[in-house]
Amino acid sequence: MRSATRHRIKLALRLAAASAITLFFVFPIYWLFMISFKTADEIYSYPPTWWPGQIQFNSYAVLFKDGDATTVWNSFVVASASTVIAMFLGTLCAYAIARFRTGGDHLANWIISQRMVPPIAVVFPIFLLYVWLKLVDTYIGLILLYTAFNLPYVIWMMRGYILDIPRALEESALVDGCTRWQVLWKVVFPMCRAGLFATAIFTFVFAWNDFIFALVLTRTEVTTYTVQVTHYFGGQSNFWAKISAMSVLGTVPIFIIVGFMQRYLVRGMSLGAIKG
């Protein structure tokens, strides 16, 4: 009896702590979203209000009218194109490394170490190269860089997923009359569908959320939403309405996508160290 009460009190305390912690982590996002629905007057009123007096979408309307919203489209184009290419090339490479041990441990280690290089050190010479190749502020330039930058991640993750496929499945297909290519298409890809999907999502999010590459390599034509957000920063007076509305436009797609793939999140974030 007494232990049951104690148990209940403990549970209540844990629940309270969990709620407080979650509130701390969710509140800033709530605030960001809420600001975007407020009128300008309400945003700049003191004291701040904790929820919008009246929900309105004027901040978004402005973004669409001015054409700023197309930066979300730019983000989408470069992120999805680079994801498709990186997934295709990276998965093939991962297959060779996983199954044929091509290049041995050295290649695998070199590839993962590529992931660790700080972007600023890469983007600087790339920028100079792009100036020469006239690739600055083009879709192709950004797509190429995102593809290359995400390749190590794709290769690393897909290598793990491919190693999870029982070898006998492929061998059975070989004996049954498939060529190596057919084995890839008929056995390997279907077997790691979930892995392909999860890795693609991560690759997409990396490119989508990137700031520094886009900051350096875009000007006006293919500005991505992250760069656009910073355009509204201005010394002492920030354009809060635009900052929040633009951020929300860029963040909602991510929330939706991630909602669908909770299961694969941890494996993707831990570079495959944890299997879900």
Binding site: L32, I35, N209, F233, S244, S247, T251, I254
Partner: peptide
């Protein structure tokens, strides 16, 4: 599910959020 949200937000948006 709620605690995942900060991680997947773009760092630049996270910065903007905190400047708000």
């Amino acid at each position: 599910a709620l605690l995942v949200l900060p991680v997947v937000v773009s760092p630049i948006v996270a910065g903007a959020t905190w400047s708000l």
